[in-house]
Amino acid sequence: MANKTIIEGLDGLRAVAGQQLGASEWKPLTDEDIVRFAEATGDFQWIHVDRERCKRESPFGVPIAHGYFSVSRIAGLFFEIVEVRGFALVLNYGLNKVRFPAPLKSGSRYRLSIELKELKDIPKGVEALLLANIEVEGQPKPACAAEVLYRFMSA
């Protein structure tokens, strides 16, 4: 397990503004992961779930994860990177911008890296703009690059 960035309350959050918060451990992507996501969303497009057709027809040669799979991993992996203390709630507030610059292929490994870009005061807390990247091991471009908004709410 990678070392977590520990954030102690609002002062601790302000202290790491503008900084990289770290990266999660590398995670393997399996066909089973992709199929479970397809089942959860109802998106069974062949480029995700048909290994034989991907071998024949896809420029990637193997199934690729849904773009939204990459986005959904941000929330789950965030708390692998960061331990937040001293707030009543941490809420995923939304996304400003999301792009999928490169495919996340079955059999590859991926991780989340996070930068705390800026903070904005809001009633009863602070809103954080985070730059999140789902990186693909050995690839120059991420599978997902997103501007994520989290709200850190006071007790």
Rank of each mutant, 00 (worst) to 15 (best):
S24N: 05
E25R: 09
E32C: 03
G94W: 08
L89C: 07
F78S: 03
K55T: 11
V98Q: 01
R73S: 14
I64N: 03
I47T: 11
E118Q: 15
A23R: 10
L149S: 09
K97W: 02
S106F: 05
I47G: 08
V84F: 06
S108H: 11
D11K: 13
F78Q: 02
I114K: 00
I122K: 14
I6K: 15
A128L: 13
A38P: 09
G22W: 00
Q19Y: 08
Q20V: 10
F100A: 05
I47N: 05
T30S: 15
V49H: 06
S106A: 13
F60R: 02
A17L: 07
R53G: 12
K27Y: 11
K4G: 10
L10W: 05
M1F: 14
V90A: 10
L29H: 07
T5E: 09
L129S: 03
R99H: 09
N92S: 13
L149K: 14
P59V: 08
L91Y: 04
R14Y: 12
V90F: 08
I122V: 15
W46D: 14
D11F: 06
S24G: 10
A17R: 08
E80W: 04
F152I: 05
A146Q: 01
L95R: 01
P63S: 10
S113I: 01
L129Y: 00
G138W: 01
F37L: 15
A40T: 13
Q20E: 11
S58A: 07
Y150F: 10
Y110E: 00
I74H: 02
L131W: 05
L21N: 04
D33S: 12
L116H: 04
Q20C: 12
E57C: 05
K4F: 09
R109F: 03
R14F: 12
Y150V: 09
L77I: 05
G76P: 01
R51Q: 11
G86A: 05
F100K: 02
